[in-house]
């Protein structure tokens, strides 16, 4: 039966293949590829998951170290009076750690996806397999860390006796836009990183900078150029706004709502276009990586 099935598969390779077929068939191709490679995707994710902390003494504890150190740093800065957080109505550690959990989802996800093709370089030039699955699977690690951090946060919620908003039940929906945004960007950067290794080097540097620019660990400034900048920062709407909704239930301002919805739509469009670009150009990466 297997043979009968496989006899029907016919593949053609020629230059500019996808362009000749037209854009509509591209979506079908992408969908079919992702669907038929679910198990591959899971296996690749499992590989990353099993090997990440395998030869490590602290193991999974590393997931907590980054948020604790970051929050600790800010607490010290606050204690010494160098820095003020602004007006935050909930216990600061809750605010900060939840914010960092969201941020980490974006940042570690982006870094992992951007490096995924380069890391698998030797494999890519020897086996033909779905590269989209590889990129998506490499994002899985960030999601696992996020879930672990959320569980850890649950304990903190009890400790501070603070009830999160009922919206927390919709957490998966709230994080979806930032995941799509990060993944979309990751698709493009993984390709570019395959050609220019600069991308990978610059990214970790840039991430720290972006985190300081986004009000993850402090409240959104009320006025000044920094506040204006934040108004146009898509990361603010995709990371800080959902976090604020979760903690406080409602949003401070109407502009946050509109900003949030615009950003969600943008991230969807962005993700789709990145996926299409990846699909159109992934055949070029094996020879350059």
């Amino acid at each position: 039966m297997n043979l009968v099935q496989s006899k029907e598969t016919m593949v053609t390779y020629e230059p500019d293949n996808s362009i000749k077929k037209g854009y509509l068939s591209i979506f079908k191709e992408i969908f079919n590829e992702l669907k038929s490679n679910q198990w591959l995707c899971y296996q690749l994710f499992k590989r990353d998951f099993l090997t990440l902390y395998k030869q490590s003494f602290f193991g999974i504890v590393w997931v907590f170290i980054f948020p604790l150190v970051s929050v600790g740093t800010f607490l010290i800065l606050k204690g010494s009076g160098i820095f003020t957080f602004g007006n935050i109505q909930v216990p600061y550690p809750l605010y900060a750690i939840l914010g960092i959990a969201f941020w980490q989802l974006f940042a570690t996800g982006l870094i992992a996806t951007s490096n995924s093709l380069v890391k698998a370089g030797p494999m890519i030039v020897k086996i033909n397999f779905s590269k989209k699955s590889l990129v998506i699977a490499s994002f899985g690690q960030a999601i696992v860390s996020f879930i672990i951090q959320i569980v850890f946060l649950g304990i903190l919620f009890i400790y501070y006796q603070h009830m999160p908003s009922i919206i927390i039940l919709f957490l998966p929906v709230l994080v979806l836009p930032i995941i799509l945004f990060s993944l979309g960007l990751g698709f493009i950067l993984s390709l570019l990183n395959g050609i220019f290794r600069d991308i990978g080097n610059a990214l970790s540097l840039l991430m720290t900078f972006c985190m300081l620019l986004t009000p993850v660990l402090y409240a959104k400034p009320v006025s000044g150029t920094f506040a204006d900048l934040t108004n146009y920062n898509i990361l603010y709407y995709l990371i800080c706004v959902p976090r604020n909704i979760l903690l406080m239930g409602i949003m401070n301002s109407k502009s946050d709502w509109t900003g949030f919805f615009i950003s969600v739509v943008l991230s969807l469009v962005f993700f789709t276009s990145c996926l299409v670009i990846f699909h159109l150009t992934e055949t070029r990466i094996a020879e350059r990586v």
Partner: peptide, 24 residues
């Protein structure tokens, strides 16, 4: 590698019918 679809041709056309296994 081109028959396997790892590299794509720059000119011409390759048609492959059936499941390909490559031991490269």
């Amino acid at each position: 590698k081109m028959l396997n679809g790892i590299f794509w041709p720059d000119k011409g056309k390759i048609t492959v019918c059936g499941r390909v296994g490559a031991l490269i």
